[in-house]
Structure formats: C-alpha cells, structure tokens
Design a protein around this nucleic acid. Sequence first.
DNA 1: GACTGTTGCCAACACCTGTTGGCAAACACT
DNA 2: AGTGTTTGCCAACAGGTGTTGGCAACAGTC
Lengths: 190, 190
Amino acid sequence: MTTPTHSRRSDATRASILRAARERFAADGYERATIRAIAADAQIDPSMVMRYYGSKEGLFAAAAEFDLRLPDLTSVPPARLGEVLVRHFLSRWEGDETLVALLRAASTNPGAAERMRGIFADQLTAAVATFGTDPALTARRAGLVASQVLGLAFTRYIVRLPPMADTTPEELVAWIAPTLQRYLTGTPSS
Amino acid sequence: MTTPTHSRRSDATRASILRAARERFAADGYERATIRAIAADAQIDPSMVMRYYGSKEGLFAAAAEFDLRLPDLTSVPPARLGEVLVRHFLSRWEGDETLVALLRAASTNPGAAERMRGIFADQLTAAVATFGTDPALTARRAGLVASQVLGLAFTRYIVRLPPMADTTPEELVAWIAPTLQRYLTGTPSS
DNA sequence: GACTGTTGCCAACACCTGTTGGCAAACACT
DNA sequence: AGTGTTTGCCAACAGGTGTTGGCAACAGTC
C-alpha cells in the first residue's frame, strides 16, 4: 500500500507517456500506434509503458478516458439547444485530441467502439433526457444527434473532406445547429 | 500479351480472393485484416494473393473499388431530393459491404481516406452540381450531406450505437431526409 | 552507512506480418 | 506425345510486434 497523496517521482513520466499515447493514437489509430513509437516520443523505454499501464489495451484505456462535459441543458433556452450543442462539441473536439484518438480507434478496435458507445449512449442520452420530452423518443433523439456530430468529426478530422475541414466553426454551427435542434425537439416529418 | 477476352481459369480464384478481402476489410479494418486470413477464407495460399494483386495495398485498392451509383437528380422533384438521397445511400450501404470496408479502413489508412475523399468529393459534388444552385455553395452542400450520411453509416455499421443500429431504414429516412433537404436546397439560418 | 523500494534500461523471447523464390502438378496447344 | 504456360503450394526470409525478466543506478528511511 503506497501513499496516494504523496506525489511520486514517476508521475511526470506517466503523464508524458499518456500525452505521447494520445498523440499517436489520434494520428495513427490503435494498431499503427506502436508502444515503441509512443515510448520514443516520451523519451522512455518501452518496458516502462508496460510497467505503468500493464498492456497496450490498458494504455489505451487510460489514454482514452474522456468526459464530454456536456453543459446543463435545462438552463438553455429550448430554441437554442441545437446551437449550444454544436458549439460545445466543436470546441471540445478542437481542444482535445483524445476524442480524435477514440474516434480513429473505434473503427478497428472493439474496446474503443464499446467505449464510444458508452460515452454517447450514457452521457448524451442522459443530457437529452433532462428536458422532458417523450421518454420513448429520447434514445433515438440522442442517436440522431450522435450521428450528425460524429459525421462532422469524421469528415472534418479523420477523412478531412476539404469543404468540411476548411470551413470555419461558425459557419458549421450555422448549418448544423438547425439539424440538431430538429433531432432534439422536432418531429420526423417537420 | 494474353488474350483478355478468353476467360482464364484463375478468374474464379481472383473473385473469391476479392470477396474474402472485402469481408475481412469490412469486419476488421485495414491493418487487422491479414493476407493470411483472407487467403484462408478464400481457401487459397497467401502467395497467390500476392501474385494476383501485387501487394496488400494493391489488394485493398481492388477490393475498395466503388461507385456510389447516384441516381440522376435532375429527374427528381426538388422537394424530394433529401428523401431520395437518404434512401439511396441506405440501400447502397446495406447491400454492399465494400463501403463499410472503405469506411473502416479510411480511419487508419491514408490511401483509403484519400479514396473516400475522392468518392465523396467527386461523385457527390458532381451530383449536387446538376441542379443549378449557387456554384460557390455546391462543395459545402455536398460536404454537409457527406457528414450526415457518413455519420449515419459510422454510428449504424461501425460503432453500432443501439438507437441507430436498431432503427428501421424507413424511420431513419423520415428523420434524416429533411436534414439532407436543407443542406441541398436551404440556407443555414432556415 | 546499510537496507528497502523505486525508476529506468537492456536484451531477449515468442509470435505474427508482408513478401519472395522455387518446385510440382494441371493445363493448352501443336 | 511433347512443349511452354498457368495455377497452386511449401518453405523461408527479414522485419516488426507486444511483452517479460534481470540488473544497474538512485532515493528515502532507520
């Protein structure tokens, strides 16, 4: 039993490994990101990665720890829900490469896909459930929002489709906010 | 110089390799899909794959050959463009695992991403350009459509988010058609 | 100053990867 | 029947992978 309050000398190493891991996973995906490359980026021996994180899966699990940090939607004017959500997602995505790492890895790694499912099923569905719409529709609304938001991320950060990668966040917000708004509060036919 | 009209005996082998490759690439992604596994599925020696397709990259290039087969949008009532497009994409996606293979591989393989970019930038942009909207907006409209359609595919076939994977195509069409309709013919603020 | 635990590196293991060259059988053609 | 080509398999190579165990240097405690 070690004292968790006392900061160990290896904390800096742990952190630099994690930082390098996020970068590599985001840039290369799960299988192309090798432990040796991550260790080289962190200027550390590959065996240290194993000692501190147990396995490659364990390292990824630690590196892909993520919270959407969705704002409290009950204090948002109902007509502006879509806009607030797109803006939040865009800023969350631009500022933290963890989500890109998770997105890339989710395509090929079952564990990463499971985690992505958890994040969007739990956190987003919970947020959608806070304003009282038909509970039977809540999951579907959250799923539709996830499809547009993840599609935006996929085309902008992964595939880098020129029109999506080059457009300014504000223009994207203007186009996509009404979509999310309808998914959240509208009906299919409207 | 061999006679290209005469069907060779190896055509069946070539085809079975290609079929196995598409399945594996679709299920596992580019790096996890090994030539040995593909050859085993096709009940053939791994070296045959190399002889017929040159390299793993060459095999993928052949397996990921794809045409969106977009319908002629000029003969579609302008108000129903969104609906026609979602329906077309969904049926195209359900019936041919090539697109799933390409989608999975595009996350980690630069060549696959390049091909995906080409397909959606060329074919989709060309289709959008057929009905005469503002040319300056054409690329952006196509990009937005791609973001929603690829997001649908990503959540439904790759991550398998429950609400997206379980919903019937018709319900998806009802929800998503208006989105594409606005991206194609609307304005951001509307 | 000796003792105990931590931090780090080196070397190696066992396995899997794409890829290659050679050789036997089946075929096509005269 | 005999010759040249095609189809297929086997064995192997060179390189990279995650992972492990041991050993030196250091830090902190009595």
